[in-house]
């Protein structure tokens, strides 16, 4: 943990005084910690010369930022137009039943977070999901279960 704290301090120093540094700092902090804690946002506020409320206001405006620790794996279901007309809703149903959670939640064992994204841009393979950084396409409920099983093993 010492190491992460050091990296965070280095990050703050590297971006101190640069214009437009708020969002990159929030992004890099989230990458490092997995989410944005109130303490980290307060530190970013001091470094950027803004109030904690301003930082919180910026962070909550954007869909990318999380304020709770995520699961070890993140399952993002694409809800782009092509995925919608090709059955993204039934993928949601499958995932909710398999994982026992709603979109935006994390499983009790901390294994999976379930998220919704506006579009992954792989429309020709609709419907798609992104498990961590890998896109899986041309899915049905059955194929999605296989993706989950592979992820678990």
């Amino acid at each position: 943990m010492e190491h992460v704290a050091d990296s965070f301090e280095r990050l703050l120093e590297a971006w101190r005084g640069q214009k437009g540094n708020v969002i990159p700092l929030l992004q890099k902090t989230q990458k490092l910690r997995g989410f944005l804690s109130n303490e980290d946002m307060a530190r970013i506020a001091r470094v950027t010369g803004k109030s904690p409320a301003e930082i919180y206001g910026v962070a909550t405006f954007y869909a990318q930022f999380r304020f709770q620790p995520p699961g070890r794996h993140t399952m993002k279901v694409c809800h782009g137009t092509a995925c919608h007309v090709n059955g993204a809703d039934s993928l949601d149903t499958t995932l909710k039943m398999e994982l026992g959670i709603e979109t935006g939640q994390t499983t009790a064992d901390g294994e999976y977070s379930l998220e919704k994204v506006a579009c992954l841009g792989c429309c020709s393979l609709a419907p798609v999901v992104m498990l961590d950084s890998e896109v899986h396409g041309r899915l049905t409920g059955d194929k999605l279960k296989k993706v989950l099983r592979k992820g678990k093993s």
Partner: peptide
């Protein structure tokens, strides 16, 4: 910032 769903 290609935001339109269905556009890539």
């Amino acid at each position: 910032d290609e935001g339109d769903p269905g556009a890539f």
